[in-house]
């Protein structure tokens, strides 16, 4: 009896291993954790609308990890907090993966100080560079060294950890070279840790994504940023209006989804999802406290999908301080 039972169990195991169901409609997304809340919201709504007939999964392997899976053809859509890089483009080409690049939301890196900080009215990009460049390590330690008139107190610095896209973008925009930063500051991949640190220290200075600043705006201050190369010569506060107007520079950055051309052609549900994404992104991004793009940008995205315009508008080189119009007006190249 017992033998019979165990043989039966074994048989079942073998049978079930032999057939592998993949007939269900499944859309696989992975990549940036910054963009995750937006994509999650879209996926949630989409599944609700389809009443579970189409399934969507979203992972958070990070922008780089997401692109790796995308290039191997394992996922349909990659979430990205930066444009695709040159090496990734080359690998994609070698693997025969073509993609459509769609900006879907904005992030504004926000320079923040403690609520009780009453001396900072704005900071220039040069002043920020002076604080954050690698040469500043152990040299620029007091507020008075940033600008005469600031208090003679130690600056307590908070910033992104070296593995995050936020770190890459901030260092590129402020210091002028990706990943070039001083190392003697409190670094964390978890932005909530930074938020708590900045709230708890009067002499703190740090940078976080706008989505982390917005829910805490009553407990800390965002610093207006002044940049010589900006259209507006006055200091600009990070806000929805300023980002949409394209004047919060150089710290606003577009967030993208990359859609596989093959998935779009072979899986009608992917096309449906992407169109749904572009139509709903503005509403849903605001709901999860992210910054949406102007309407025009989503229309343009829909056109790109309809025309199957593959490639990137960035050429694989990280760039900073691009206005939304400039991003949209660049024709994608493969």
């Amino acid at each position: 009896m017992r033998k019979l039972l165990s043989i039966l169990v074994l048989l079942f195991l073998l049978m079930s291993c032999a057939k592998r169901q993949e007939s269900e409609k499944l859309i696989k997304i992975d990549g940036s954790s910054t963009l995750f809340p937006v994509t999650e919201a879209v996926a949630e709504e989409f599944q609700k609308q389809k009443q579970g007939k189409i399934r969507v999964t979203v992972g958070i392997s990070g922008t780089g990890g997401g692109f790796k899976k995308f290039i191997r053809g394992e996922i349909d859509i990659a979430n990205a907090s930066r444009p695709i890089l040159k090496e990734e483009m080359e690998q994609a080409r070698a693997n025969g993966i073509e993609y459509i690049e769609l900006p879907v939301a904005f992030d504004a890196l926000t320079v923040v100080v403690n609520k009780e900080n009453n001396w900072v009215d704005y900071l220039t990009v040069e002043e920020l560079k002076k604080v954050w460049e690698p040469e500043a390590q152990e040299k620029i330690t007091k507020w008075s060294q940033i600008r005469p008139g600031f208090p003679d107190e130690k600056i307590v610095l908070f910033g992104a950890g070296a593995d995050s896209g936020t770190f890459d973008y901030f260092t590129d925009a402020i210091v002028g070279k990706p990943k070039a930063s001083r190392g003697d500051y409190t670094a964390s991949e978890d932005d909530n840790v930074l938020v708590q640190g900045i709230e708890g220290n009067k002499y703190s200075l740090g940078y976080i994504p706008f989505a982390y600043y917005a829910p805490h705006s009553d407990r800390m201050k965002a610093v207006p940023i002044k940049w010589d190369k900006n259209k507006v010569k006055e200091p600009v506060v990070p806000s929805l209006e300023n980002v949409l107007a394209g004047i919060y520079n150089p710290l606003s950055r577009p967030l993208f989804i990359y859609v596989s051309k093959k998935s779009l052609e072979e899986k009608p549900e992917v096309r449906e999802f992407v169109e749904f994404y572009l139509k709903m992104a503005a509403t849903l991004a605001k709901e999860v406290k992210y910054l949406p793009l102007p309407e025009k940008a989503y229309e343009m995205g829909l056109q790109r999908v309809a025309r199957m315009q593959t490639g990137t508008g960035f050429g694989g080189i990280p760039e900073v301080g691009l206005g939304i119009e400039e991003i949209l007006n660049r024709p994608p190249k493969s």
């Binding site: 079942f12 195991l13 049978m15 079930s16 291993c17 057939k19 592998r20 169901q21 992975d30 995750f36 994509t39 999650e40 996926a43 949630e44 599944q47 579970g52 399934r55 969507v56 999964t57 979203v58 992972g59 958070i60 392997s61 899976k69």
Partner: peptide, 24 residues
């Protein structure tokens, strides 16, 4: 590659049709 957002369950191990048990 475990996921973060997943809003469906794996197929049920007990089926209404033979062989009644599924390991999908």
């Amino acid at each position: 590659g475990a996921l973060t957002f997943i809003a469906f369950l794996p197929p049920s191990p007990i089926q209404s049709e033979p062989p009644y048990i599924s390991f999908d």
